Amino acid sequence: MSNKLFVDVHVIQTVPPSCLNRDDAGSPKQAVYGGARRARVSSQAWKRATRLAFREELAIPADQLGVRTKRISSLLADRLAARTGIDADAASRLSTALLQDLKVTDGKNAGETAYLLFFGLAQLDAIVDLVAGQAEELAGIAADALPKAVADLPVRETLAVGHPIDVALFGRMVADLSTLNVDAAAQVAHALSTHAAEIEFDYYTAVDDAPDPDREDAGASMIGTVEFTSATLYRYATVGLHTLRGNLGGDADAAADALSVFIRAFAKSMPTGHQNTFAHRTSPSLLCVMVRDDQPVNLVSAFEKPVSRRDGLVGESVSRLAAELTTVSSRWGCTPALVATAYDNPDNTQTLHEAFGPPRSLDEVVTAVDVDVRARLGEMTPR
């Protein structure tokens, strides 16, 4: 049996007029694919939306998740003060001394690092554990002597284990200390429209509700434009379960739990660019999850030739995806070990059933994948 296990997640989702993800000029991001200009949402935008969904949609407690910030020293100081009762100034000095072992470059602002660090709040609590019993004694040591007093504490080692699920999934790079790097278990593709897409402009005005009665101005008090596009998107992500389990300390059950969380969050998340302007939040038209023991397979080739239909794009996009899956399986031998799909019953029902299996609910998809990967992880040798 292969010692690798991949879970591919495919989504077809239509969004109305929106600006989910802007470039530096404020325009919706785009890309040329198959010779046609497509709407695009960057992988970074959807990964952040997925991370936010862990907390906001799935209500996972903050202490089980990661935080990405330049303010690791301030957060550690707050936790030191809260746990040990030492004053804020002493906690700040102790925090700075503890983190000197990381050798992370200081930022422009006091107490900040030069770049964002991604870590778990539980990992900060584990660092507090290292000094909790002697915090008052350490608080009495001069700031210049503190680094030597805590030099033998395993701060690096503490940040290298016990990763929260979002760090385990999306990885971490620490430029100044490669031993703290975490290889990402999840890869997320840029979402692309299955069809050619154009950018349009919304011209808007705002009228003063309490105008000066002595003035005869009858026009708008504010005029502007905002760019938008609408699209049927193909979204894809893959998770290496073997890597995820390794990032979670070899715990197969924790890896399976994290995968279920990721599938739900990725399916239900939505970037929030111009959300108040467009109210663009929709649900997927299709969620297809495939378990593979050979390699991940992005099925975007289904849309290399842009979909072009006047009676709607979702049905044809779903049919194209089904055909691509069948082709990849039969021609290239990349046959998934499990396919579980949530979708409606549009045209070509028999074709869709042959490719995707019978339609299921989101809960049924997650459960089917969970049962399958737990069994497979149990048969694999931990890396």
Rank of each mutant, 00 (worst) to 15 (best):
T327M: 15
D294T: 14
A302K: 00
S230M: 10
R360L: 15
I263C: 10
F278K: 11
A256H: 02
V328R: 13
S301F: 04
A256R: 01
G273P: 06
A337N: 14
L259F: 10
L325C: 07
D251I: 01
N298G: 06
T335P: 03
S269Q: 11
N348E: 14
L321D: 02
D253K: 13
S329D: 13
R309V: 00
L299K: 06
D293W: 02
D251V: 00
S329K: 11
Q295D: 10
F278Y: 15
L362K: 02
D344A: 15
D294H: 09
R309M: 00
E364V: 07
T229A: 15
T272D: 12
V261G: 04
L325G: 02
N345Q: 14
Y236L: 05
T326Y: 12
A355N: 04
S330V: 14
K268L: 09
D253V: 11
E364S: 12
T335M: 09
E364M: 07
G273H: 04
Y234R: 00
S285W: 01
A255P: 03
N276T: 10
R331V: 14
H353E: 12
S269D: 06
A337H: 09
A265I: 05
D344E: 15
N247Q: 08
Q275D: 15
F228C: 09
F228Q: 08
E304R: 14
Q275P: 07
E324L: 10
A254T: 12
V239M: 00
R320G: 00
N276D: 12
R245L: 11
M270D: 04
N348S: 13
K268C: 02
T326K: 15
D257G: 06
N276W: 02
N276Q: 11
A237L: 10
V261N: 09
N298E: 02
G357K: 09
R320I: 09
D251P: 01
T238F: 01
N247A: 06
L313Y: 04
D311W: 05
V314R: 04
A252Q: 02
F303V: 03
T326F: 14
V300N: 09
A267R: 01
T232K: 03
K305Q: 10
L259E: 08
A256F: 04
P346H: 06
T327W: 15
Y234Q: 01
P296F: 01
V300W: 01
G240F: 02
S283C: 10
L352F: 00
A279Y: 06
M270L: 12
L241P: 03
D363H: 00
F262A: 04
A323S: 14
N276I: 03
L352Y: 01
G333C: 13
G312Y: 07
M270A: 08
T229I: 10
P336E: 07
H242C: 07
F356Y: 10
M270T: 11
A267I: 02
R292V: 03
A279F: 07
Y343E: 10
T277W: 08
F356P: 02
D251E: 05
L248E: 03
T341W: 10
A252E: 04
R320T: 09
P359S: 08
N247W: 05
L321P: 01
L259T: 08
L299R: 06
D251M: 01
L299F: 08
A265S: 07
A231Q: 09
A342S: 15
A355I: 08
L352P: 01
A231P: 00
A267F: 05
S301Q: 13
R360E: 14
A322Q: 13
T277D: 08
I263Y: 06
T243A: 04
N345S: 12
G357P: 10
